[in-house]
């Protein structure tokens, strides 16, 4: 199948890739652009480890064609920290022990990044609902909830 040229913005930089129509964004990010932060877990859009942010929304990149992202603004975990240091949410995950094996963490962080813009002051119940598209097998979620709550507090103070 003929490949198509696709351009989009990834973490603020324009990227150009040549892909088959069937290529999934997660593979383009990981194989083509060497951004291996987002992972592959279930491939049926249940686990959320492939979550990235596209045009201001959290999206599971295993269930999106790269050709669909033409012209989009894509953010991945690699774009979270800046020259000034870690993002408040990243630091909160460290401080609250919100990660263990780290495999779900990039997706979890990207979802938290968007969720806290959708709901800057969530209670625990809202965190559970808002983060429910991301699975974790290690933490039992409790410390991730603490991390998101802490991040919300710190973001509001920042």
């Amino acid at each position: 199948m003929a490949k198509q040229a696709v351009s989009f913005t990834l973490n603020g930089k324009t990227v150009d890739v040549l892909v088959e129509p069937r290529e999934l964004l997660i593979h383009t990010l990981r194989e083509n652009l060497n951004q291996t932060g987002a992972h592959i877990g279930c491939e049926t859009s249940h686990c959320g480890v492939c979550t990235v942010d596209i045009d201001g929304e959290s999206v599971k990149s295993c269930t999106l064609l790269t050709v669909q992202t033409a012209g989009s603004d894509v953010k991945s975990v690699e774009g979270m920290a800046t020259a000034d240091g870690l993002h408040v949410i990243q630091q909160a995950f460290v401080d609250e022990h919100g990660l263990q094996c780290g495999f779900c963490t990039p997706g979890m962080l990207m979802r938290a990044y968007r969720f806290l813009q959708e709901n800057p002051d969530p209670n625990d119940e809202e965190i559970r609902w808002g983060m429910s598209g991301n699975l974790c097998r290690c933490t039992g979620y409790q410390n991730i909830i603490n991390a998101v709550r802490t991040a919300a507090k710190n973001l509001q103070q920042a």
């Binding site: 990981r30 194989e31 060497n34 951004q35 291996t36 932060g37 987002a38 992972h39 592959i40 991945s76 975990v77 690699e78 979270m80 920290a81 870690l86 990243q90 995950f93 460290v94 401080d95 022990h97 990660l99 780290g102 495999f103 963490t105 990039p106 962080l109």
Partner: peptide, 21 residues
């Protein structure tokens, strides 16, 4: 104490098998 391994995981720099090329 906070974990020493976290820095790479929170920045998408873990190195899992499928990341290896």
């Amino acid at each position: 104490r906070k974990r020493k391994e976290d820095a790479r995981f929170i920045q998408g720099k873990g190195n899992y098998t499928d990341d290896i090329k």
